[in-house]
Design a protein around this nucleic acid. Sequence first.
RNA 1: GCGAGAGUGGCGGAACGGCAGACGCGCCGGACUUAGGAUCCGGUGGAGCAAUCCGUGAGGGUUCAAGUCCCUCCUCUCGCACCA
Length: 812
Amino acid sequence: MDDRYDPRKIETFWQAQWAQQNLYVAHEDPARRKFYLLEMFPYPSGDGLSVGHLHNYVPSDVVGRWRRMAGFNVLHPMGWDAFGLPAENDALLKGLHPKDTVPRYAENFKRQLKLVGCAYDWTREINSSFPDYYRWTQWFFLLLMRRGLAYRAVGSQWWCEKCRTILANEQVVNGCCWRHSDTPVTKKDLEQWYFRITAYADRLLAGLDGIDWPEPIKLMQRNWIGRSEGAEIGFPVTGHQESEVRFFTTRPDTVFGVSFMVLAPEHPLVAEITTADCRSTVEEYVERARRESEIERLSALREKTGVFTGAFAYNPFTQRNIPIWIADYVLMGYGTGAIMAAPGEDQRDFEFATRYGLEIPVVTAPADGSPPEPGRAFAAHGVTVNSGFLTGMPTVAAIEAVCRFVEERGLGRRAVSYRMRDWLISRQRYWGAPIPVVYCKSGCGIVPVPDEQLPVLLPDLKHYQPSGTGRSPLANVPEFLHTRCPKCGGEAERETDTLDGFACSSWYYLRFASPRYEAGPFDPEKANYWLPVDLYIGGAEHAVMHLLYARMWTKVMYDAGLIRFEEPFPVLRNQGMIWAADGQKMSKSKGNVVTPDAMVEKYGADPLRLWELFMGPFEEPTNWNEKGVVGTARYLARVWTLLRRYIGAGCPQGEPSPQTLRRVHRTIATVSEHIERLRFNTALSALMDELNYLSGLAPEEMGRVAVESYVLMLAPMAPHIAEELWRALGHGDSVHLQSWPKYDPELAREETVTVVVQVNGKVRERFTIDAGTPEAEVRSRALQSEAVARHLAGKAPKKIIYVPDKLVSIVA
RNA sequence: GCGAGAGUGGCGGAACGGCAGACGCGCCGGACUUAGGAUCCGGUGGAGCAAUCCGUGAGGGUUCAAGUCCCUCCUCUCGCACCA
């Protein structure tokens, strides 16, 4: 054992040893309790990992190592979310090819993870852009297709000019592309593939109740799904026998207050019903709405605009004809793309009616008879007024009455509407899994590629730049494009769009159970052993994309009888974001990125790991501060010194004092509990505290138990130094194969306690007594105190509260 | 606008309704040193010589006792932003 703690020296040595010993390779073992630990599938970016990313990987590693010591059979794998726009965009920017850059970047990530001592089972490494992986991504596409969950439809969809592709709704953030926050998305009409995630809306919602996820994430999913109950009703268009305006409303009770109707500008009825004299203004408005960037159109703060179509609808409740307008505050993608406007009860309709001088009937009044707030709609529930047969009913009863009324007369029905749309999965881009279908030219239509012909290989293209025409570059590859129909053998063309990258990450957690399996996406037996994931760790930014998609796929697999669980991630935790020292996001362009490489070089991997754990609560965001690494490096040097003293004294074998033993066991209890609850910062502070205590002892007072349990507890957090110290203590095998120290509550029990005495809520005295001293004795001792007497100032105690072994509170 | 979370020393942060500030950074003093940005020892919320008083964003409340529970407000962060 060296005199001085030299992190780099021992770290490189032990990392090589571990790799040689295959220490972290997982094997199925039905006799042992499994623990599947997983971090969210990382996209290996060219910038490599920063110390911010490590705030995810290091704590996970601690959990994995700790669970292993605690007797669990741990599966902790790693792989690469390699397909998708980020990888392709990066390669385009650098004039390189993603097939070259991605493996290189992944290697770099792997190197960095090893550099900081993270223990993964690298034999299970996967890469979603490799054919042996995306073959099964394609297989899942076909599964969804077979189950009627993948379909093709024409739609006006989000388009990012920089990515030159269509985006899913979830991938549009503040009206901009999720990868380009400076690029407003526009609309483009294309025929696209969708996954029918809305068919799972209710189950995705219900499933949230049974899983242990951070409440904010569940809430975000609930809001994203956005379930609303109401009714879908149709009002006939005056003078158009066949046509009606069908609309969804959550407030059918306000039908008597409907004074006009509004269609989305894209609504198919617009062309049909617009009268000749309104045609030019309507067409102009529709055209403008299409052109306008979504960021403008989506702003709730913007003043509402619209134009009259010249047509009227018949409101069967009021028996009046009401004007039909179009306005861009009505969205084609929600409900039926049309609304009944009840301006007295809906603030948006109110604003619109005010602006265009439309009638504003009042049909709901506050239930308590108070006057409604003037100048705005009364949107709350209340009592229905001026509404024929509904008058006098409370809102809830009126809703029910209208639903029954329209159902009886065939005017409409109860309906549920979701904010969530179907998941658009076509990408007009090169770097993704080709969608495995062909279009037969002899009338077979859309034909799925048979399972045994998978994978549909992504051709190796030199020029893979997106065309911008709305077709993927694969369309320019004749040998890819032209094929035979699997059904009739006739001429056919392949689908040239690729799958959204999120498809890859929707099932990867299953692949890790049997990453080289060839008879299916996963070996059912192995998947059955390892899954579901016991602890899933990742950033909150995936609340509505990856986490929703993965849940849906899992439910599809469950329905198909492939797996026995319906939720892939029963326990989810979010690590807090680490901001740069300047409080901004770490990014290369801002020049504020701190790399693990630099920190390991300067301080060592273990000190860096400890600082990642110690800097704050795992789930809270905080700013990077390099100074802290000095502290954890110093701490480890002191641990080193402690062990050197103990070993230097010949490893005295004597029993430690009861007091020392008590401290040791209390520390075991604290560290275990805090690691389990992912409170790494306080787990480490308990170890620091313990070190401060042990450092004050002579080697022969420490005792082997204290020293060894200390090294064992350090092992998950600082694996290299712990390994070195373990060997220095004379052990032959790895510290990481040892059992976690056993906590003995008997030995941890305090014999004496400090009791505080309060007078009128202020601490005036404290004394030490034996634990479990009878109440009467403690009370009398408290009252005997000179300080207590002084503060009582002669007054008799009115009341005395006694908390055993803790406090006496005297009220005077 | 709506929803969620958070405000504690100079800093990161501790604290089952029961001694606020554990642990660490920084700082101050000392020791050892040719040297110290190494190491070790001591100190460190504010005011006061002291007893003591004041202190967890602001203001109320509940309680013997509130950082913790309740109400009102302020600030910050995040999410959703015309979803009928």
